[in-house]
């Protein structure tokens, strides 16, 4: 070490600048590559802003103010993989009488009248190579809020958890759920 420090006083300012100039792009490039790699590793499930929906459905009104249980509309959640969105028909049970003059409800009415499905923008999704089944999670007593956040207070639903692999695993580990890759990966 001494030998190396002995070299230092000989470095002039000019040399230091040159060294700096020569190495900075190198270091910056390396850091950039590293950053990209890190991003790629972590990517695939970061929290996203709320997407724009074809109909401005307000969860805070339904799940919050009206305190409708989640399962009332998302019927599949307790029994199968997808929580499922309700059919237009189900919306119309209430909205054929409730707030029919609202412009958003009229959008819904239009779908009902023309027999066209509503293409909701998907908020939560896991990649194609992941199998997520709602039913066992509900069975295990995991509350909807655990993963979806406090939807009852959201006007627009957005993803609040990263739902990346590590996120899932952390929860599985805490709850002694299976950590076998094949549990989730298909």
């Amino acid at each position: 070490m001494q030998h190396l420090t002995a070299l230092l006083p000989r470095v002039t300012l000019k040399q230091a600048l040159i060294v700096g100039g020569a190495t900075t792009p190198l270091l910056a490039g390396g850091a950039g590559v590293l950053a990209i790699l890190l991003y790629l590793m972590a990517a695939g499930g970061t929290a996203t802003p709320a997407p724009e929906q074809p109909i401005a459905f307000d969860h805070s009104v339904h799940a919050g103010d009206a305190a409708i249980p989640c399962e009332f509309c998302h019927r599949g959640v307790g029994s199968q993989a997808a929580a499922t969105v309700p059919s237009v028909e189900q919306c119309m049970f209430c909205h054929s009488v409730v707030k029919t003059d609202s412009p958003q409800i009229q959008l819904l009415q239009a779908h009902w009248d023309t027999n066209t499905p509503v293409n909701w923008a998907r908020v939560h999704r896991v990649p194609d190579h992941v199998r997520f089944v709602h039913a066992p999670h509900i069975q295990a007593g995991v509350a909807c809020e655990t993963c979806h956040g406090d939807v009852a207070s959201m006007e627009e639903v957005k993803q609040v958890r990263s739902l990346a692999m590590g996120d899932c695993q952390g929860c599985h580990r805490e709850n002694s759920a299976s950590l076998d890759c094949a549990t989730c990966h298909k």
Partner: peptide, 11 residues
């Protein structure tokens, strides 16, 4: 895996 399967994780 612990069920005797030789699992391939594609991703």
């Amino acid at each position: 895996n612990n069920e005797g399967l030789n699992v391939q994780v594609y991703n």
